[in-house]
Amino acid sequence: MNLLFQQVLNGLTLGSIYGLVALGLTLVYGILHIPNFAHGALYMVGAFASYYFMTDMGLHYWLAMLLSGVVVAALAVLSERLVFHPLRNAPPIHDKIAAIGILLFLEAVIQMLWGSDFRRMASPYNGILNFDGLIIPEQRLLIIVGAFTLMLALHLFLRRTMLGSTIIAMAQSREGAFLVGIDANRVAMLTFAISGMLAAFAATLYAPINLVYPAMGHLVIMKAFVIIVLGGMGSIPGAILGGMILGFAESFGGFYLSSDYKDIIAFSLLVVILSFRPTGLFAKGAH
C-alpha cells in the first residue's frame, strides 16, 4: 500500500513539473507555431538563477523563485524580440535552428559561470510529513500544490482577464485576432514571458529534490515535447493531462520495469503515438 502510494506521489510530482514546462512550450507553439527548442535552457537558467539568489545573495526560497521568474521571463521576451520576431516569415526550418542557437548559447554561458558540476539547492522545506504511515516529503507536497496553484492561476488569467483572452483568441485564429485589433507583438511577448516564468517556477520547485547542472534541461524539454505531442500541440488541458500521463508512466514504469530505462519510456511513448497518429493524439485539424 505504502509502496503504491509512493509511486502515485512520485508520478504526481513528476507530472506536475512536466506539466508546467509543457504548458509554456504549448502556449508558445499555440501562438507562434514555433517549437521552442530553447525552452529547456530557460528552465535550466531558472534553476541557476534561483540557486544564485539563494546561495550567493542569501535570499529566501520564495523570493528567489519570484526573481528567477522575472529574470527568465525577461530572457524569453528578449529571445522573442531579437530572434523569433525577425524570423516570423522565414522558412520553417530557420526558427528551429535559431532556437537551437539560443539553447547552445545559454548553456555555454551558464557553464562558463558555474562550471558543469552538479549542485544541490537547499530548500526551507526539508521535513517529512507522516500521515498514519503514508510518508510525504514536504518539498514534494509543495511541488504538487504549487504546480496546481500555478495552473489554476494561468487558467483564471487566460479565461477571466482581457489580456489573457487575447492569447486565447490569437491561438485560435491569427487572422481573426488581427481583425479584431489584437496587437500580435504584444501577445507574442506576453506569451513568451509567461512561458519563461512557468519554466523558472517549475525548475525552482523541482531543483531541491533533484540537482542543478547546465545539461538539466535536455531531458525535460524533450519530455515536454512528448507531452505536447501527446496532448495536442497548442492545447492547454492537453499539456496538463499529458504531463500527468507521462509522470505516472515514468513513476510506475521505473518502479515495475527498470529504473535504468525509465527515461526511454517517454520517447517510446512518442514513437508509438506518432507511428499511429502522425499529427499527435488529440490533434484538432489537419495542420
Binding site: 517549437p35 531531458l219 500541440m233 506518432l274 502522425p278
Partner: peptide, 28 residues
C-alpha cells in the same frame, strides 16, 4: 519509415527524441 510521415515540426521533434534515445541506449 516512422518519422518521415510527420510534417516539419513533428519530424524535427521526433528526430530530436530519436537522437536522445540513441544516446540513452548507448549509455545504458
Amino acid at each position: 519509415l516512422v518519422s518521415l510521415r510527420l510534417k516539419e515540426h513533428f519530424f524535427a521533434i521526433f528526430t530530436l527524441c530519436v537522437g536522445f534515445i540513441i544516446y540513452l541506449l548507448i549509455d545504458k
